[in-house]
Design a protein around this nucleic acid. Structure first.
Lengths: 228, 228
DNA sequence: TTCAAAAGATGATAAATATCATATAATAAA
DNA sequence: TTTATTATATGATATTTATCATCTTTTGAA
């Protein structure tokens, strides 16, 4: 079993503020898991009772709407922490997380880390900072969802994906999403997403390379996102 | 100047976890403010650098979209804390807060309370819990915005307003919102909000009493919110 | 009190988006 | 490989929502 003290992934998230002793303790009780593409890390209604530290892979965090449609509220990648909220609340999760590619994650049980949250101000301030950031992002998404057209949201999403997952040498965005996933990010029907993607392709603003997407004309996408 | 140690409002938020000494210290440096209806507590781009404790009144927290339309992301009432995020981040606010009625608020400068956040775990855990709750709410709003129709969102909003602000003896919801405000909560054109409100009134699910709203048939509103 | 401005209301129309149908392409299971 | 299933694509149409125009009512300032 790998040791948290030596784990590089930790450097990218709040766990980096834990002391050596705290890390050793966590190392002893954490579990490593492999999650295959398409499998859930956790499901709606489940009590997570701990946090996931993502060592490799990408997952989508989503929620079913009352209309029976799935809405993706976040994408999580290597280095991210997932499930912080379970540390603080007793409630069951209102979200589900499903792997978009094979994943390596560590799971740290709540009871082993909750004490650190109360006693290590650097750690708790870092978690607090994370949450504040997520809250700001969430507010921005609410505004976009409420005020922007589907076309705008699609353009914005493509730009965000590029930012978040970066591109390989050929300029291709490092994430594989189905058309349905994209539709579930921007909150529209799959057909609408497909249609608008086709439009962008026709205009040569983007290009499909296998399942992946390459942005050919970022300035034009930015214009669309802003409503022109 | 009133004293925080004796303030009842504090009991309703995270400040209740501060010690007597911490409260005395804050009491000495906090400022009380009166904000008239329509005036801002703070504006977009402003550095708040402190938190507001709402002693009386209601305000809307909103953000301009790139499309030039205003989106209300939260309503804040007596007992709430506003601006927690400014404690944690250096960034300017991306939101503005405007009084919907005359308000009494206390402002506590960041530098006076940030230390408590680091040294008083009960306080920091409470703030953390607040943020976790807000984050959950925000996720739910994102899903609603993305997946529900305007009609559903309106019904849901009316139900939420009743929950949040309660009703007086006559069953009238204790908050006065303009049609434009309601439109800016659900993310639609003012005309659309007016039209749908009129429909609900025609069907006798709601009634207007002056500027205020009374829910006559909650079960039917709930059905609409769920998409029936 | 009077009058201008803002808010609310409603119709007509245009634009955006969802839904349904169907076809083709890609993928995975036998 | 063959076949069944799923994903992608696209047209036709219905529905939802925005926009523009106009009117009435309410509100607030002089």
């Amino acid at each position: 079993m790998s040791k948290c003290e030596q784990c590089i992934v930790r450097k990218f998230n709040s766990l980096t503020h834990l002391s050596r002793e705290e890390l050793v303790k966590i190392s002893a009780c954490k579990t490593s898991r492999t999650i295959k593409k398409g499998e859930p890390l956790f499901s709606e209604g489940e009590h997570i009772n701990g946090i996931f530290c993502i060592k490799d892979g990408i997952c989508k965090v989503s929620k079913m709407s009352e209309n029976g449609r799935n809405q993706i509220v976040n994408l999580i990648k290597k280095g991210d922490i997932l499930g912080e909220r379970s540390l603080i609340t007793q409630e069951a999760s209102n979200l589900e997380a499903i792997a978009l590619e094979d994943m390596e994650v560590c799971f740290i049980p709540k009871e082993e880390i909750i004490e650190d949250l109360e006693k290590n101000p650097k750690f708790s301030m870092s978690v607090l900072k994370d949450m504040a950031n997520n809250l700001k992002k969430a507010d921005n998404i609410i505004v976009d969802m409420a005020q922007k057209t589907v076309k705008q949201r699609l353009a914005e999403t493509l730009i965000n994906l590029k930012e978040k997952f970066d591109t390989n040498n050929d300029g291709i965005i490092n994430v594989r999403l189905s058309r349905e996933d994209i539709a579930n990010i921007i909150g529209t029907a799959t057909e609408s997403a497909i249609r608008l993607l086709s439009d962008l392709k026709k205009k040569k603003y983007i290009e499909f390379v296998g399942k992946e997407i390459k942005i050919l004309n970022l300035p034009e996408l930015e214009k669309i996102a802003q409503g022109f």
